[in-house]
Design a binder for these strands. Structure first.
Lengths: 214, 214
DNA sequence: ACCATATTTGTACGAACGTACAATAGCGAG
DNA sequence: CTCGCTATTGTACGTTCGTACAAATATGGT
């Protein structure tokens, strides 16, 4: 029985390897964060040698960007699950949509860490900022569609819709951050309820959105 | 005319030097962000030698924590300016309070970068997370006070107040993030207006806050 | 079966990092 | 003036980082 001491080399096609590297990097991000991300750590996590990184990627910068692109997709898809369960009223759908981002699975520290690190990394790398904007824009579009569905027949001014979208997007991000900070379920509950309240309130008026006047 | 080639050594008391180091670190954070922060960079910025850092600080960790403590104070104080200008109605005061965090000065990229980096750094360093929570809690308390003032005589349930505080805190953070991302003045306007709307709406009811029921 | 090519490994190198420390320079008390 | 002390400098050490590259190994077409 020939027992080779060396572990067998497993050959993969280029694209597969790239995918493995990116996935490994993503797991590193989840486990130890952006600050501790390094080429060697990624290679270890993927079970491959350091050289592969320079073989398949031009830069660490490229690895980083592609990893965050992958992360963005993951994060976005995670919020989309269970959305098409049963046909419901537009308002109920919006409610489910908002709740989905705050299910127990999704509030796991891993996810939020990656998301917040993504914000931070976007400060330094313009390409990552672009990826982040893309993720954000997709989510925003989705939200806008749902709010328009809630509006339905009522003639809600476009400016009112925009106000709701802008505000709720901000509130959601803020709630994630707050959860990471304090882990208060009540605060999340409050934020989501208030968002629904705001929608109902604005919808109940046909006049343009009120600007606060002192 | 004796021209000493060496630059003169300027002696300071210990506390002064510590302060200078922290301020230099803060400026580094503003200019180039957390990712590029290093002992040598800080020393250069402060115009002192590298050795001083180990002389006055145990760790880089200590420098980091103290710098973020300083930053937190700066950020908090920046939002407090111009608040005591003229006595106004509680609602107007709340309005000014919300607006203050979004004046042109305060939306400068420097400030937001430090704030977001602070969120990110808090993920890795528990001490920084504590500092961040402290800043956040102080701000939250302030907001709560103002909202209670708006409530005034009306018997608004504590739960409603809590809902408003949780939601508006989240919205403000989210708006900062969104501004950094897209720089849309309209979005900020919308978020702030919606926050005031929400307050008015909730205040206009004496019943407990509505929870959305499907 | 064989060879060109693609994949993989291991190692090496320079730069930058945090930290430690001996040497030097100013300061203040006596 | 001088001596002890504190502040300050400059340098050196061990790590870790990103990147490069030669050598080794598997693959696939012919």
């Amino acid at each position: 029985m020939p027992d080779k001491k060396r572990k067998p080399r497993v050959f993969r096609s280029g694209d597969e390897r790239r995918g493995e590297v990116i996935e490994a990097a993503f797991h590193c991000l989840q486990e130890s964060g952006y600050a501790k991300l390094s080429a060697r750590r990624i290679a270890d996590r993927a079970g491959i040698s350091l050289g592969q990184l320079t073989y398949y990627f031009k830069d660490m910068r490229e690895v980083l960007v592609e990893t965050y692109r992958h992360a963005s997709l993951q994060l976005f898809e995670a919020t989309q699950q269970g959305l098409s369960d049963a046909p419901k009223s537009p308002t109920e759908q919006l409610h489910v949509f908002l709740e989905t981002g705050f299910t127990r699975d999704f509030l796991r520290r891993d996810y939020l860490r990656v998301r917040i690190d993504l914000w931070s990394a976007a400060l330094t790398h313009e390409e990552i900022a672009a990826v982040e904007r893309e993720l954000y824009e997709r989510y925003r579009l989705h939200l806008k569609t749902m709010i328009e569905a809630v509006a339905g027949d009522r003639e809600v001014p476009a400016a009112s819709i925009a106000m709701l979208v802008d505000t709720i997007m901000a509130t959601l991000d803020g709630l994630w951050l707050d959860w990471e900070r304090r882990g208060s379920e009540a605060a999340v509950r409050n934020g989501l309820d208030a968002s629904m309240l705001l929608v109902e309130y604005v919808m109940s008026r046909t006049s343009p959105p009120q600007q606060y006047k002192p």
